[in-house]
Design a protein around this nucleic acid. Structure first.
Lengths: 324, 324
DNA sequence: CCCCTACATTGACTTTTGTCAATGAGCATG
DNA sequence: CATGCTCATTGACAAAAGTCAATGTAGGGG
């Protein structure tokens, strides 16, 4: 189970990090040079043999975070204000989200991952960890090559970082006809994947916008003419590829019927659902997603948190229905 | 929720460990000296705001560990051979056990802790972690002051290290008469604690020996005259203060009936049960504990692992009943 | 209001760690 | 069997982190 080349890395990591020996002491004990020890330790950190993580409490203790938790009944909210590196909190959302996500994933979990620019950025910012028995499952169908943020790559990358196995959908996200989509959904190999989503312990996803330059358009899943059409029908956002209205329910349109993706009941059956909102333009989609009870945990910027509270304060008080 | 003094420590930890800034960069950003940053970072590590942990895979990949897993059907076994600091693996068992235990504890878990010299040593070796919503419950009654390894201290220390809340038994471990023990067990506050044990997600315990210098004797729970008596009845070991025979069942004796401790069905109802065996003299007690299906996970020395396999190889093959 | 104590912070120094070009070892190929 | 390749390892230097005595500061008591 442990390659002999890794053995020495594990030993060095154990002596250095757990026992607190200095690098030269570790070197002496293992009969190698100190430079090698330094090298091994770096490899140990990079591959998740050693785990270093900072608490994300800082972002939960923000006043806005507390207010959102109270107001909407979320289990936990992380708000990114001015704490970060740059003056632009948006850029650091993926880093925070990656930390939060890693904190939430437990050994043996089955994790559902939907796709989006942000999810891809999170995968990229995530450090390697050595979890046991984790499975990462894709929550929606795939897109062809023209676009670089492919859903399956996203899933696989996250799986790789967690030392987990990844389960991809062997189907496109959108098909040409409703009939073909229906037939495909009933294929055993697809059916199985769809049914497996409700059995996840944790989900990671974003809500998408519906503009000319939003993700679903740019990646070619949705055409501009079709966009105009569904916007007339009241489309407000995108969840795992599917279009939702302002009430958070699946919009009744051909596009949605031609889709292979997790159905909303399955998503809501997942006990912990982490939504990450990066861009400040996503207020409307986020409101729709909240209305649809898609999330139990939320990561967002302070600006967005403020907009959300402003908007919610104006409306009537909600009874905070967090879990399905 | 976050004391203002801790805020700066969190910020420094976040910038340094998550974003990978250098200490002087962190210092500049926070308008403090680099020396302060170094100080805060140390505090962050010591208080669990930052978590650094090395994988324990090294000890699971040992040949002996695999054989034990196969032979007895344990979920996981960690074997400590010559990997450590000193030539005495026994001394390092608590360190390894602490790492393993921390790997096993998840946010929100309810953890049962039994007591023993080894459990105390584990508590001592455990690094601080910042877990959310963990509860540590004591699995047996308490002993008075004369002895320093008090069960309640043990529970509380582990709770402290995990940032968890601790639940102690408000009762002695052994009483003078069977009748008093019976009455006390029915007291609501005690009953509640006893009933709560089966609801644990994880248990940490040792098996004790029954010699003149073993723990139960030294701490005054059991007298020498009584020891001789129960040994005649076939006593082989101690689980959470209670005497078991070679079949792992509760020994039918007055001592056991005067005891306030977790009943065995409750213990076996806990899904993950980590047993740690430190001393090489515990072969007989360990065999009895295995027979009683008290453990699903095991940490022990290579020497002990060998004895165990030798002994088991001689006997007939067991069907490996790991879980209750 | 002043003094004293206890603790936080810092600058300067020492120790430890990271890095990289140079070397060596293993291995497949011509 | 020599050759050229890749990759692991190392020694020496540069960079970063740890430490501690000295200084500053806040708070409590007389």
């Amino acid at each position: 189970m442990l390659r002999p080349a890794d053995q020495i890395v594990h030993k060095a990591a154990w002596l250095y990090y757990t026992h607190g020996l200095r690098q030269d002491e570790v070197a002496r004990r293992l009969n190698i040079s100190r430079a090698s020890v330094a090298l091994y330790l770096r490899r140990a950190r990079e591959t998740g043999i050693v785990n270093i993580s900072a608490s994300t409490q800082l972002f939960r203790s923000d006043r806005l975070a507390r207010q959102l938790e109270d107001r909407f009944g979320f289990e936990a909210v992380w708000v990114l204000g001015e704490e970060g590196l740059t003056d632009d909190p948006t850029a650091e959302i993926p880093t925070l989200a990656a930390s939060v996500f890693l904190e939430m994933v437990q050994n043996g979990d089955r994790v559902g991952v939907a796709w989006g620019r942000t999810v891809y950025a999170i995968a990229d910012a995530m450090s390697y960890a050595d979890r046991q028995g984790v499975t990462v499952v894709e929550m929606c169908g795939n897109l062809g090559s023209p676009y670089s943020y492919r859903p399956d790559q996203c899933t696989m990358e996250i799986a790789r970082r967690l030392n987990a196995s990844g389960l991809n959908f062997y189907a496109p996200l959108v098909l040409s006809t409703e009939d073909l989509a229906r037939q495909l959904r009933e294929e055993p190999v697809i059916r199985e994947q769809l049914d497996g989503i409700a059995g996840c312990d944790l989900a990671l996803f974003t809500v998408g916008t519906l503009d000319e330059d939003s993700h679903v358009i740019k990646c070619g899943a949705l055409g501009l003419d079709e966009l105009a059409e569904i916007k007339k029908l009241g489309a407000k956002g995108v969840i795992a590829g599917q279009i939702i209205g302002s009430d958070g329910a699946l919009l009744d349109c051909s596009y949605n019927r031609r889709m292979i993706s997790a159905d909303f009941e399955s998503i809501r059956a997942i006990p912990r659902r982490l939504m990450v909102v990066q861009e400040d333009e996503k207020l409307e989609p986020l409101l729709a997603a909240i209305e649809g009870r898609f999330l139990t945990h939320l990561v967002l910027t302070a600006r967005m948190a403020e907009s959300l509270l402003e908007h919610a304060g104006a409306g009537e008080a909600e009874p905070a229905p967090a879990s399905a």
